[in-house]
Structure formats: C-alpha cells, structure tokens
Amino acid sequence: MCGGPSRTTVDRMIEVRELTKRYGATTAVDRLSFTVRPGTVTGFLGPNGAGKTTSMRILLGLDAATSGEALVNGGGYAALRRPMREVGALLDAGAVHGGRRAFDHLGWLARSNGIGARRVAEVLEQVGLAGVARKRVGGFSLGMRQRLGIAAALLGDPGVLMFDEPVNGLDPDGVRWIRELMRSLAADGRTVLVSSHLMTEMELTADRLIIIGRGRLIADTSVRELADRFRRGVLVRTPRPAALTAVLAAAGGSVESMPGGALTVTGMDVAVIGDRAAARGIPLYEVTPHSASLEEAYMELTAGSTEFGAVAS
C-alpha cells in the first residue's frame, strides 16, 4: 500500500491544537485539541451539534479556523498538492450530482489528482459497486451512495481517512461492512477518524475515542479505559446475603443491597468474592462484573453539553 517504513512520525497523523471556530456569536469549536494516530480506528463522538463536522471541515481546509491549528501529516491541508493521495474523506454521501454515472463521478475525482482510471475500477470493485458503475448516481440508495463516497475516499490510497457519520441510514449489512472496512484500514497502518453520535456504534468499531460536546473536548481515551472508568462493581446473588455481606465487608469490600436480594460489591474483583464465599461455604448463584454500558458512560459524560436535539451535526 502507500508508504513504508521510511515515513516520518508526523505522517499519517491528524493534530488539532487549540482549534476554535466561531460563527457570529456561536462558538462551534472551542479550543479543541487532540491527536489521531495511525493503526487504530479513532471514534469522534459527540451529540448532534457538538462540532464534529465543523472540526472535520476545518481539517479538510473547507472552513477557516477562527484560531488554532488543524494539521494533517504535519501541515495544513490546503498546502497538499495531491490531497487524495494523503487524505481520503467522506463528509456527505448525498453530495453527488444525481445525473452523473458512478464511474464518471470517481473518474473526475481521480483525474483531479492524477490517479489512473484503473484505480477507479479497483475501488468500485472494492466497495461492491462495479455492477452499477455505468448507472446514474441519482438512482442509488443511501447505502450505495455511502459506498460511492467511501470509494472516493479510497481512490488515492491515502494514509489518513476521515468519515463523517458513515453508517447513518445504512442497513445492518452495510453497517457491518463499514465497520469491517474501518478496522481493516486501521490494521493496514492507516489513521482512521470516524465521527458518530452513537456510542453503541463506536463501541464496536473504534479503539480510541475522542468525545466532544459543545465544541469542547470531554474525553480523549481508549474504549477500554472508558469502560474501566465507569465500572460499577460486581453484582452478586446468594441465598445468604446477610452472611456474605459480613464476610466481604470484613475483607475490605463495600457492599450494597439491591432490590430483589442481590448485592452490589465494589472494591473487590470477581475472584476475591468467589474465594471468600467459598472459604465460608456461602453458595453463590451469580457473580457478574457490572460496568455501566459505554452508552451510559457517554450519556453521563456529555450530559449538559447537548445542543438542542434538533440541530444537525
């Protein structure tokens, strides 16, 4: 694929530093800083209107930042001579001329960056649109348009990829296809930034998460760290809750009675709970480590930073 071991460290990197974008009185992006590294899928999460699309537009040189920097491969996007060979982007799959055939759409894109027609056929094959290459885009379903947009992003075989809400409106097969594609692109050593407002989706696709709300950074973390941070103890069921409570409390755990007779134990992992119970002959019916779902964690993190529900991202 493109690039090799000779590449420098700033290659295949997205760096946003103190980025601010104001539209009149509205601050869409507020001193946002983060770095996206190669080899992983990075989820760019936030409620609608959080500033994800604006940040991506600034990264792609479409909008000018009010202040701060948005760098791709160590420089500004506008300085790239043949940007498609370095950065592939899908912002809005609907932004195609309905009267143009799929082959022609990719054809002019390829031509603009000195990419050959053979590559057009390759990406059409890769996204499963080879059979409709000569059809007009106007007749495409949303899923087909997403595939076409992804084909466009892949045309230049770039090391950095940005996708804005790529799974919106896709059927389950399409969602799974995109998820696997993202993961394989990252596995090739590419930098992949995928925005979404759905944690449930990112949980399955991303390794790292950048969570923003109202234009500000809320969390820059890995999926695992986030899950750990919101661990909520261990759910234990036993026919002798009083005895177990005493034993675990004596061993340093903190135990809370739940409605229905279950216990929630914090400060102690599953193995210790099992061992202590076994030592005293207390039967256990269930021992379940219970973390808040990432969705709950996300809701908690972004609580208070949601723009009014109806604003498009």
Partner: peptide, 18 residues
C-alpha cells in the same frame, strides 16, 4: 450551481484545495 445545489462543491474543494 449544480455543485452548490448538491453540496459537491465541498468535494471539489477538498480534492483541489487551491
């Protein structure tokens, strides 16, 4: 205007930033 109507202008300006 066909590019502005469809939003394709953003694709155009992304692939040719100048």
């Amino acid at each position: 205007t066909s590019e502005y109507r469809s939003g394709m202008i953003r694709t155009t300006l992304t692939v040719v930033p100048r």
